[in-house]
């Protein structure tokens, strides 16, 4: 089954993990997801290959960005009636605290979804959701005709 086939099913924690397995880099990073009511919690378990700073054992900043981008993509797909793979237009990432070698979480909020563009806000944290380690804002092109 292709990713396109799988994403036509309503997201449960099970279909979400099927989605993630079909995206090679998301699978390589080890991203997981859990449906919580109407929301999706994205999880990045610790792994030595994700580190970017050996001195303080912090996860590579780019990996945190990639995790948050992937979270936004699947958060958007989960809301679509006719799912298409959103294409990233731009990505703005604020690093607030170091992400150490433990579980990192992300949650997304669609600030605005128009006919062809979605604006998504993503928050990542480790110990306390109220103390984010990074926040990001991304625009995605979602109109099939324009891609």
């Amino acid at each position: 089954m292709s990713l396109a086939d799988i994403i036509r099913h309503a997201p449960s924690s099970e279909t979400l993990s099927l989605w993630l397995e079909k995206v090679p880099y998301a699978a390589y990073l080890g991203i997981e997801a859990r449906v919580e009511g109407d929301d999706i919690l994205f999880i990045l378990p610790p792994d030595d290959k994700l580190l970017g700073n050996p001195a303080i054992r912090a996860i590579h900043g780019g990996v945190i960005g990639a995790f948050m981008e992937q979270a936004a993509v699947f958060h958007l797909i989960a809301r679509m009636e006719t799912p298409v793979l959103p294409k990233i237009i731009d990505f703005s990432l604020d690093y607030l605290r170091a992400n150490f070698a433990r579980h990192t979480y992300a949650r997304c909020h669609v600030t605005r979804q128009g006919r062809s563009v979605a604006n998504v806000h993503i928050t990542a944290w480790q110990d306390d959701e109220q103390q984010p380690t990074a926040t990001a804002r991304a625009h995605f092109l979602i109109d099939e005709a324009l891609t």
Partner: peptide
């Protein structure tokens, strides 16, 4: 490192890294 298995295009996050 692919982000779209249908096309083989690299993941946007890889470019971020």
């Amino acid at each position: 490192l692919v982000g779209d298995p249908a096309t083989g295009v690299l993941h946007g996050g890889v470019i971020t890294v």
